[in-house]
Design a protein around this nucleic acid. Structure first.
Length: 462
RNA sequence: GGCGACGUGGCCAAGUGGUAAGGCAAGGGUCUGCAAAACCCUGAUCACGGGUUCAAAUCCCGUCGUCGCCUCCA
């Protein structure tokens, strides 16, 4: 038995993972705010969560995976003021907020599919759970943690002694360094549970509530929906590292106020992807790389997944085109090798055991990849290698089993030149053969002589 | 201003007390009429300066640099 050890941000320690209700694992992953496309930095986190889920499955657990779609409630500026991102995105595109949400949700799902990320068991949209959120706020209110201002209902963080534990927040320090507009908030860390619609304008997304017409604050959906689908205390909650100090801290506060639990037994966070220029990749900056951008540059989206597998999730990762290129090439080699091995036999137990050890060591995928290359270069029979790597791929998620060498349509013109070259070679007219090779190359194709005869393929990058 | 992280060969990146995984690129080689593919081989003492230790990339202090969070953000 090899225990699964994961790094829990809440305790800041490596802990052995055991499901609360075996064999099922309840897992909640913070999903996208659908006012724009997802960028590859966002996607790194979803890849990390996918690896986590696959490792759980590999360990024999079943996973109930819930992902939210935030389609309301995120404000664009400081201190819970400003325009809602959804409404702003809608105005930009000349569509309704609802249409925007629908469109970007579909685009997001398309990206997940392209990266071979397993779909959640349950998708849940914030706007489909307004009543649950109202009920949750009422619960917090009844427990005495709220107060009202002219623009909304707020959570009084000073009433919760444990507030900020996840982020190890230095509350005093925050107050000293506070530079944000407090508005009517009583404490810098207080946050909105329900926001009233502006009196002078009609919002596209607004609902009635016991406190007045408005919309939910941007943390309450996760507490409300996770409780609905996974209960008030479940196994694992994940998200990006940026969520530690604010979003997840506030989620925990809400759930603690209402249920007295810290929401999840394990808190896992994926770290940021950074551009080599050191430029932060963020949606709000409006400029970023998406999966589509990679495809436009000629890369298979799974090359990006491969790139991410080369690093541990708990460390920043520097994105460079050279790095992606390397990943793409190594993926190509792996695919070809896997393909050439033919039919699978029985996997090698020693490699399987070693694999389990490295992935159960807090998802150490770089080591898993090193082991993979070790397997590829080993002198095990091909059918054993094939079966073993096939098993690894349950976690790696490179979809090796479904890959085939691309079938290329070679123009007759090129095929004729290849035929002429074969004749020249048969007659040992090497000069002519080389001339023909050059002609074919000039047309953008490459000839490879193999024991099975010449193979032609389009040259990469032309 | 407060809090925190990181700095490993050309690039990406593991390793966190016993003398540096892996991938890509590069160079050399085998094979090949040539070429490609494949395979084999080669390279870093771990930002810098001190300190602790029998022993440090790995612990401590300082310096420089990069980055993150504190404000929507994966």
């Amino acid at each position: 038995m090899t225990p699964l050890v994961l790094y829990d941000t809440y305790t800041r320690t490596l802990r052995e993972f055991q499901p609360l209700n075996p064999p099922e694992v309840g897992m909640y992953t913070c999903g996208p705010t659908v006012y724009d496309y997802a960028h590859i930095g966002n996607l790194r986190t979803y890849i990390f969560e996918d690896i986590l889920k696959r490792v759980l499955l590999y360990n024999g657990f079943s996973v109930k995976h819930v992902m939210n779609i935030t389609d309301v409630g995120h404000l664009t500026s400081d201190a819970d003021t400003g325009e809602d991102k959804m409404e702003a995105g809608a105005r930009r595109a000349g569509k309704t907020a609802w249409e925007i949400a629908e469109y970007y949700t579909e685009e997001f799902r398309k990206d997940l599919k392209r990266l071979n990320i397993l779909e959640p068991t349950i998708w849940c949209r914030a706007t489909d759970h307004i009543q649950e959120q109202i009920d949750f706020i009422r619960c917090i209110e009844e427990m005495g943690y709220t107060y009202r201002t002219s623009d909304g209902i707020y959570f009084d963080t000073s009433k919760l002694p444990s507030y900020g534990y996840l982020g190890r927040l230095d509350i005093e320090g925050l107050q000293a360094g506070a530079r944000i507009d407090m508005g009517e908030k009583r404490h810098p860390t207080d946050f909105a549970l329900w926001k009233f619609s502006p009196k002078d304008q009609k919002r596209q997304m607004e609902w009635d509530s016991p406190w007045g017409v408005g919309f939910p604050g941007w943390h309450i959906e996760c507490s409300a929906m996770s409780a609905k689908y996974l209960g008030p205390f479940f196994d694992i909650h994940c998200g990006g590292e940026d969520h530690i100090t604010v979003h997840h801290t506030n989620e925990i506060a809400q759930t603690e106020a209402c249920y007295g639990t810290r929401l999840a037994n394990f808190w896992l966070h994926g770290y940021f992807l950074q551009l080599d220029e050191g430029v932060k990749m963020s949606k709000s900056s409006g400029k970023f790389l998406r999966v589509e951008s990679l495809i436009e540059e000629g890369y298979d989206p799974l090359a990006y997944r491969m790139f991410c597998l080369n690093a541990i999730y708990r460390q920043k990762l520097n994105f460079t085109w050279d790095g992606l290129d390397g990943a793409a090439k190594s993926l190509d080699r792996l695919r070809n090798a896997f393909y050439e091995w033919g039919a699978p036999g029985e996997p090698d137990p020693a490699y399987l055991q070693k694999f389990l050890e490295v992935i159960n060591d807090d998802l150490n995928m770089p080591r898993a990849m090193a082991l993979t290359w070790d397997l590829v270069r080993s002198d095990l029979p091909n059918e054993v290698k094939k079966a073993t790597l096939l098993d690894f791929d349950r976690v790696l998620g490179l979809d090796l089993a479904n890959w085939q060498p691309p079938e290329e349509v070679i123009p007759d013109e090129i095929l004729r030149l290849v035929e002429l070259r074969q004749q020249a070679r048969a007659e040992k007219r090497w000069q002519d053969a080389d001339t023909l090779r050059n002609q074919i190359a000039a047309a953008g194709y490459e000839v490879m002589d193999t024991p099975q005869g010449p193979k032609v393929k389009r040259r990469r990058g032309s």
